[in-house]
């Protein structure tokens, strides 16, 4: 049996790029990370509302357990792993999707962030069709500029494995997008 998620991450992670250990309050963590985490979740789920649901629930869980999560060397890596895994895991996606139903049903009427360009949406849709590790590595690389070393720590794999996922993901993505172009033509 594997160890608990948080503990396993805490044992292995160092702070990802840009993560300061000087301010360990949850408020600072939330202020700094929420937009990035919501963006990551959006990219990997394909739905803004589902992504925000997932991100907010993850931050609520982090806050409830901040006494422990806040002591991790890299809480930012921890929440990225939680969200990246939840977003791509089919089983968990079902749960998030179920929870997000009313968000789709009763969307906020106030100001909302701009829509993503159609071309970009198509590329992210193709990324989501990749095997989950490849999709995660591509999202972490291109959205946040993480190094292979950072990604290995976030996803608990070696940098070499992360590199393999990245290369294979890009190759598969090229094939997918080429096929889309051929169908369109």
């Amino acid at each position: 049996m594997r160890a608990g998620l948080g503990k396993a991450v805490a044992e292995t992670h160092s702070p990802p790029r840009g993560e300061s250990q000087s301010d360990t309050s949850f408020a600072a963590f939330y202020a700094r990370e929420y937009p990035r985490i919501a963006e990551l979740a959006y990219a990997l789920t394909g739905d803004r509302w589902i992504g925000e649901d997932l991100a907010q629930d993850s931050f609520i869980a982090a806050r409830q357990n901040w006494a422990e999560v806040g002591t991790y060397p890299a809480p930012g890596a921890w929440i990225r792993r939680v969200v990246a895994n939840k977003a791509v895991s089919r089983y968990r996606r079902i749960q998030v999707e179920r929870k997000a139903l009313p968000r789709l049903w009763r969307r906020p009427t106030g100001d909302t962030p701009p829509e993503v360009a159609a071309e970009a949406a198509e590329i992210w849709a193709a990324v989501r069709r990749l095997p989950k590790r490849q999709a995660q590595v591509i999202a972490l690389t291109y959205l946040e500029g993480h190094s292979l070393s950072d990604i290995g720590e976030i996803l608990q794999c070696s940098p070499f494995t992360a590199k393999t996922h990245l290369q294979r993901g890009k190759q598969a993505l090229a094939t997918l997008l080429r096929a889309n172009e051929e169908v369109t033509e």
Binding site: R36, R63, E119, K170
Partner: peptide
């Protein structure tokens, strides 16, 4: 290239990220 396409796609998402507000977690709970 795939690199450029992904970079552009990421930048498009950044416009969403930069505009997103921090929801009140207390209100959500």
């Amino acid at each position: 290239t795939i690199d450029q396409m992904l970079t552009d796609a990421a930048e498009s998402l950044h416009s969403y990220r930069d505009a997103i507000a921090h929801p009140d977690l207390d209100e959500r709970v």
